[in-house]
Structure formats: structure tokens, C-alpha cells
Design a protein around this nucleic acid. Structure first.
Ligand code: FES
Ligand code: FES
Lengths: 154, 154
DNA sequence: ATTTACTGGACCGATTCGGTCCCCTATCTT
DNA sequence: AAGATAGGGGACCGAATCGGTCCAGTAAAT
């Protein structure tokens, strides 16, 4: 259904939570679980993943926790998906040659590549900072696109 | 991994196959299986689905088969995904209220809606006809988006 | 009546998803 | 040094989805 996984969403929620704090704030898993009302094991798991992706810095031991490693304005949603879901490829075929055994016959392959690029571009154009601050939404081509779609619908 | 299912892809390949023929051409499941080199049961299943979605007209009996019901230039990729995968909702939460039990707390919900709209718009801007004819690719904002992403990457 | 071909749905193995648990190691506090 | 705290790594599990097959039924042409 063209959906990203719930876990990934949770991961992003967590990251957004960090982005709301002053830069460098350290929060531990328990605190995160409380403020997001998510089950502790899930929070822990996702934080680990995010740390592994070099998005969070982890600090062990008592008084430990996680802190945001990068400027929220520099982290794109595309990157997050990359880190949490291992890449954005609308279909196996899009990921590169060798994934589909009928790449020759297939006439739709190349157009899909372009579509995939478009989607990726859309995701790369939104940053973590923009996820936190509502209001200004500099999403590319959304008006032109939706109006075009509206025209088409007539 | 933000991917559409293989079956869906196959369905689109089949549809594209029809779009290449003169309008109204009737092809049966066996023929489709041959020209696409896909296993017959799969082809059959997807054709049924497509017929159910009112994209193909089905004709039973001997000399029967399927034929394209709509003008390829009027069918958008977004529609296809809608029909084959039951909607485009990046995450459960995006599909509407009541899917996620923390809609209140969640600060990322609304921004995601916009992102979802953007992706949807991108998909709604490509028609079946454009999938078949390569070359001209009027994908929205792809240059502006990729250049914006490039700027960001610096 | 026979043959062709779509229809509807059951069904199955394999993978992924969502989520939990446990043991280990690092660090801070006292 | 001892104890408490907190992350790291990974196994693990049930449930849902995915990819694909199969078959009994029905409509149409000849
Ligand atoms: S390349 Fe895989 S279906 Fe087109
Ligand atoms: S509304 Fe479901 S996670 Fe934000």
C-alpha cells in the first residue's frame, strides 16, 4: 500500500522530539518513552537504530542517553527513510539491475525510474526542522501538481 | 522500504501492454502471459483485479479476453496504485483519524500529511500513456527539486 | 453440447512487521 | 571498589502481508 512502516514513523517522531529541544540535549530512552507514550522497548530499539545511523549520539552509563548529532535543518526526510528503511526504491526493479528477471521485455522500467526520482526529490526537499516547525511548508510543486491533477480530473 | 508490491508492478506492466495496442484491442490472459513472460496464474489474477477496478473490460467465453476501458492519457499512476494497492498512504496515520492512538501527542502528523500529498501529486501527474511513450517526461518539479536537494547537500 | 476463457475465492510457504526480552558492556556515583 | 544506571546487540515470537498457485463455477461463442 505504499506505506512506510510504523516503526519508521516512530523513529521519526522520536527524532522530531529531539529536534524540539535545544541542540545537544541528552535524553534517555525512558524519558523518550514517557513523553511520546510509546512502549519502552520500541523506543529503545528505534533509538539504537538511529544511533547506528549516526543521527543520534549515544552516551552509556548512568546519566547517559541520546542526543541529536546533526542540525535538524540539514537532515532530510529522504535520509531518514534511507536510514530507517534502507533506501527508497518504489519497486525492486528500481533499485538497480538484476532485481527483476524481465528487465529486457519491460517497457515500464525507465519511466518508473523517473517517478522514483521525483518521489525521492520530494522527500529530499523536506527537512527534520520543517517537520517540527509547522506553518511554512516549502514543498515542491505541490500547488502546480495538484492543480494539474485537478485539470486532469475534469 | 517504501516499495510498491511486485504484483502491483506486474499489473501496471500488463496495463501498459494494453496501452500499446490500438484502443479497444482484446487480449486474453494466455496471450498476456506469453508476451510478458509472466506466470499465467499471476497474469490472470492481476487482470481480474484490474477488471474489478473498472480499468479493463472483461469479455467471457470463447473469443473473450480483456480490453482497455479508458484512455491511457487519462489514467494516472496514482489511480493505478489506488486500484491495485488500495490507496496511497505513507503511513497508517496519514489515512485519516483513528488509525494511530497518539494523534494528539504527535507533532509530525500534519507535516506528513503534506508530504503525502506531494508524493500523491507526483504520482497523479504521470499518466499511463506517458509510461508507454518514453522521451517526454513532464514530471513536476523534478529539476527544481533535485537542484534544491543538490544545494542542500553542499 | 462442447470448448474457451473469465470469476471468485481458497489456499500455501516465505518473508516482513511490530513488538518483546535478555544478557552484556560502559559509565557515573558513592 | 561497589552498585546503580543506561545503552548495545541480538535472539525471538506471533501476526500480517506477500507472492504465487489452484480449482470449482459461470458466461459466451460455435
Ligand atoms: S523491470 Fe521489473 S517489472 Fe519492469
Ligand atoms: S499520528 Fe500516528 S505517529 Fe503521528
Amino acid at each position: 500500500m505504499l506505506r512506510i512502516s510504523k516503526l519508521t514513523d516512530y523513529g521519526i517522531v522520536l527524532l522530531a522530539r529531539f529536534a524540539q529541544e535545544p541542540a545537544g540535549t541528552t535524553l534517555n530512552a525512558r524519558e523518550m518513552a514517557e513523553t511520546t507514550a510509546l512502549p519502552m522497548p520500541v523506543v529503545s530499539k528505534m533509538l539504537k537504530t538511529l544511533a547506528g545511523a549516526e543521527l543520534l549520539r549515544s552516551q552509556r552509563g548512568s546519566k547517559g542517553g541520546y542526543s541529536l548529532l546533526r542540525d535538524p535543518a540539514d537532515v532530510t526526510v529522504a535520509e531518514l527513510l534511507e536510514a530507517l528503511e534502507g533506501g527508497v526504491a518504489l519497486m525492486d526493479c528500481t533499485a538497480g539491475p538484476g532485481h527483476c528477471d524481465q528487465e529486457e521485455r519491460c517497457t515500464v522500467r525507465e519511466p518508473w525510474q523517473r517517478i522514483n526520482s521525483t518521489v525521492l526529490a520530494a522527500l529530499a526537499n523536506v527537512t527534520l526542522a520543517e517537520l517540527v516547525k509547522p506553518g511554512s511548508a516549502p514543498l515542491i510543486g505541490i500547488e502546480s501538481a495538484s492543480s494539474a491533477a485537478a485539470q486532469r480530473a475534469e
